[in-house]
Amino acid sequence: MWGIVLIALAVLAVRRVWLGYPATGAEFAVLAPREEAFLQAAAEALFPPHERLPLSGGQADLPGYADRYLAVLPRRQRTLIRALFALFEHATLLWPGKGRGGFKRFSALLPEQRLGVLRDWQSSSLALRRLCLTALKAILILGYVGHSESLAALELAPWKIESPRVEADFLYPPIGGRRDQISRAGKPLGGAPTAPPLMPGLDQEAP
C-alpha cells in the first residue's frame, strides 16, 4: 500500500517539476525550459505594460538575459540562482495563489494570481521570503531596466566617451588574449580613443 502511495507521489513530483513545459525553440547555454517558463511568467507579472516604458517584461527577453548572466557566474552561485527560480516556481505548494488552481506551479497560474503570489512574498512576515523576492527582482530588474530600449526611454543611457590612452593600455592584453594582441595604435595620454560604447548604438552625447 505505502509503496503505491510513494510511487504515485514520485510520479506527481516528476510531472510537476519536469513535464508539461512548452518548447519555445529558444536555445540557452544554461536555462532549462522549466526555468525559461518561470522567468517569462515572473517578468510578465513584475513588469506589466506601462506608458512610460516601451517594453513590458514579457517583451524584454529576460530569460535570455538571465541565461547570459548565469553563464558567467561561478558554478556554486549559478546553482543557487537556479534553486531560487525553482523555489518560486514551486513554493505555491506552501503559499498558493488565490482562487481556483492556486497550487499550480507559478508559471501555470493566471496572471492576476502570479501578481498576488509575488505581493505575498513582498509583504511576508518572514524576512527570508522578502529577501528571496528582492534577489529575484534584482536579477530581473537589471535585465529589464538595463535593456537598451528602457534606458533610452528614460534618457538614462550611458554617454559616448572617448577616453585618452594611458600608459597602462599598452601593458595589458584583452582578457584571455596574448600580450602580442595589445593594440599599439594611438599615442598615450590624449591619443586615439579606446573606450568602446557601453551599449552599442545607444550611448548618448555627453553634456
Partner: peptide, 25 residues
Amino acid sequence: SAPAALAVRMPGVGTELVQRFGELP
C-alpha cells in the same frame, strides 16, 4: 550607479514598480 542597479532599490511589484522606474530621472 548604473540606473538598472539603482532600480533594484525600488519597492513593489507590477504596475507600481514600473511606475517607479519611470521616476528614475
